[in-house]
């Protein structure tokens, strides 16, 4: 049960670490790298709170072993924008009240990043399809859809 050496780039920063094979990517990101913006809600792949981008694609970090991300580029919520310089999607969520407790929000945002990369101007139905695997207990989802539309608008140069 020996440890594995892995190299993972997270938010543009390279990390060389030794991990137990069973270490979940979610724990690696949160505890080993201390990037606690990625949240663990159910730890069995249903809620989507822990969604991060792996080589540009959304994945459940609780359903991925850190060793499986060896050599990969990971992007977490911390890589998106800062409070001083928010990503358009973060601005959209702020303006349209796309969050309340904020626990599911990192997963929502990372899912939305992937969506907008493929569909810069998604329809309501496309957004609802993209978010179908992310549970939110606070908002009723409607303002999350509006937030993503608003984020898309800002990305397209809208004010």
């Amino acid at each position: 049960m020996s440890n594995e050496k892995i190299t993972i780039t997270v938010n543009g920063k390279r990390y060389d670490k030794e991990v137990e094979p069973r270490r979940l990517l979610s724990d690696f990101i949160r505890d080993d790298l201390r990037l606690t913006g990625t949240h663990v809600g159910c730890e069995h792949g249903v809620c989507g709170s822990c969604t991060v981008l792996m080589n540009g694609k959304s994945v459940r970090s609780c359903l991925t072993f850190a060793v499986m991300a060896d050599g990969a580029e990971i992007m977490t919520i911390e890589g998106l924008g800062t409070a001083e310089n928010m990503h358009p999607l973060q601005k959209g969520f702020w303006e349209k009240h796309g969050l309340q407790c904020g626990f599911c929000t990192p997963g929502m945002l990372m899912t939305a990043v992937e969506l907008l990369k493929e569909k810069p101007r998604p329809s309501v139905d496309e957004i609802r399809e993209a978010l179908s695997g992310n549970l939110c207990r606070c908002t009723g989802y409607q303002t999350i859809v509006e937030s993503i539309q608003r984020g898309a608008e800002i990305m397209q140069g809208g004010k």
Binding site: R34, Q90, H97, T105
Partner: peptide
């Protein structure tokens, strides 16, 4: 009014129970 809680939460800097380290 836009929420004052949001900037830190939206950028992954909110501290929830499991974020105490």
């Amino acid at each position: 009014m836009k929420r004052v809680e949001d900037p830190r939460i939206l950028t992954g800097r909110g501290i929830y129970a499991d974020d105490i380290n």
